[in-house]
Computed example of a mutant assay.
Amino acid sequence: MASPLRFAGFSAAFALAASFALLAVPPARADDAPVYKLIIKDHKFQPDTIEVPAGKKFVIEVHNQDDTPEEFDSNALHREKIVRGGGTGNVNLGPLKAGSYPFIGEFHESTAKGKVVAK
């Protein structure tokens, strides 16, 4: 017959293992949200308008094809994201009310301009 200490040790070890197993499960991510690709090339956003459904979460996947860094910056969306030259970055957004939300490339404001339109 097993001693109570041995059984208690097994329970503690099992609880510890179960806790680690739960930590290995990734939390729910924005992967469930639709992804819209935005390219930075020649210090311009392509496309310069992204249409999204109002009231839904979404992700903008920013691909910087320039050699220099750029910052996706929007006061209206309350987001800033620096994307290194040749790099990619995600901007998680929404849900948004219907409307137009401008954004800029803060490092090249005169050419890098765009907007998100929620319908």
Rank of each mutant, 00 (worst) to 15 (best):
E80F: 14
A15F: 12
N92H: 09
D32T: 14
D48M: 01
N90Y: 11
A30W: 04
A18P: 06
T111R: 01
L23E: 06
K115L: 05
L93G: 02
G85D: 01
K41G: 08
S11N: 12
A28W: 07
E71V: 15
H108M: 13
P34A: 01
L23S: 10
E80K: 15
L23A: 12
P34I: 04
P27Y: 12
H108A: 12
R84H: 12
V62D: 00
A18I: 09
E71N: 14
D66Q: 03
R79V: 12
A98M: 08
L77Y: 00
S110I: 08
G87M: 05
E80H: 14
K115D: 02
A12K: 05
H78V: 08
L93W: 06
K115G: 05
E106I: 12
K57T: 12
P27L: 05
Q46C: 08
R29G: 15
V35R: 05
K56D: 09
L96V: 07
N75R: 09
I60G: 03
T49Y: 08
A17S: 11
A112C: 10
A118P: 11
E51D: 12
Y36N: 00
L96Y: 03
G86D: 06
V83I: 14
N75C: 03
K57R: 15
F14E: 04
A76F: 08
L38P: 07
H43D: 13
T111M: 05
S100V: 13
A98T: 07
V83S: 02
P27Q: 06
V62P: 09
V91I: 11
I40S: 04
P26H: 06
P102M: 00
V52L: 02
H78M: 04
K56N: 05
P34D: 00
H63T: 10
E70G: 15
P102T: 08
I40E: 04
F7S: 15
A76W: 07
P102K: 00
K44G: 11
I39Q: 11
I50L: 01
P4H: 01
D32I: 11
E109N: 15
G86P: 12
R29C: 14
L22C: 12
I39L: 13
A28E: 09
A118S: 02
G87P: 10
P102I: 00
P4R: 01
P26N: 11
P34C: 09
